[in-house]
Amino acid sequence: MPLAVGVIQTDGFPPALAAADALVKSAGVTLVYFGLAERAEFLVAVRGKTAEVHRAMEAGIAAADTTPPGGKLVSHYIIPNPPENVESVLPIDFTDQVERFRM
Score class of each variant (00 low, 15 high):
residue 8 I to F: 00
residue 58 E to G: 13
residue 45 A to C: 13
residue 19 A to R: 04
residue 27 A to M: 12
residue 17 L to H: 05
residue 90 L to H: 03
residue 40 A to G: 12
residue 89 V to E: 10
residue 8 I to P: 01
residue 103 M to E: 10
residue 61 I to G: 07
residue 73 L to M: 11
residue 34 F to Y: 14
residue 73 L to H: 11
residue 67 T to M: 14
residue 68 P to Y: 04
residue 80 P to H: 02
residue 96 D to V: 06
residue 82 P to W: 04
residue 47 R to N: 03
residue 59 A to C: 06
residue 100 R to D: 14
residue 16 A to R: 00
residue 101 F to P: 09
residue 87 E to H: 11
residue 93 D to T: 11
residue 6 G to V: 02
residue 19 A to V: 07
residue 4 A to E: 08
residue 85 N to S: 14
residue 90 L to Y: 06
residue 81 N to Y: 05
residue 43 L to I: 07
residue 85 N to K: 08
residue 19 A to D: 07
residue 68 P to R: 15
residue 85 N to M: 09
residue 70 G to A: 07
residue 23 L to T: 09
residue 40 A to S: 14
residue 33 Y to T: 12
residue 102 R to D: 09
residue 89 V to K: 11
residue 12 G to F: 05
residue 48 G to M: 02
residue 4 A to N: 06
residue 29 V to D: 01
residue 30 T to F: 01
residue 4 A to T: 07
residue 68 P to K: 13
residue 10 T to G: 01
residue 30 T to W: 01
residue 2 P to I: 07
residue 12 G to L: 10
residue 80 P to S: 05
residue 52 E to Q: 13
residue 69 P to M: 10
residue 6 G to M: 01
residue 27 A to D: 11
residue 80 P to A: 11
residue 48 G to Y: 00
residue 75 S to I: 01
residue 91 P to A: 01
residue 46 V to A: 08
residue 76 H to Q: 11
residue 84 E to W: 01
residue 96 D to H: 09
residue 30 T to A: 03
residue 40 A to I: 03
residue 20 A to W: 01
residue 25 K to P: 03
residue 38 E to M: 10
residue 95 T to L: 11
residue 93 D to I: 03
residue 24 V to D: 04
residue 42 F to Q: 04
residue 3 L to R: 14
residue 2 P to V: 06
residue 74 V to M: 14
residue 36 L to G: 02
residue 74 V to F: 08
residue 17 L to C: 10
residue 8 I to T: 02
residue 65 D to V: 02
residue 8 I to A: 01
residue 29 V to W: 00
residue 35 G to I: 04
residue 74 V to Q: 08
residue 97 Q to I: 13
residue 65 D to L: 11
residue 75 S to A: 13
residue 41 E to D: 07
residue 40 A to F: 06
residue 100 R to H: 11
residue 43 L to M: 11
residue 35 G to F: 00
residue 1 M to V: 08
residue 76 H to F: 12
residue 65 D to E: 15
residue 13 F to K: 05
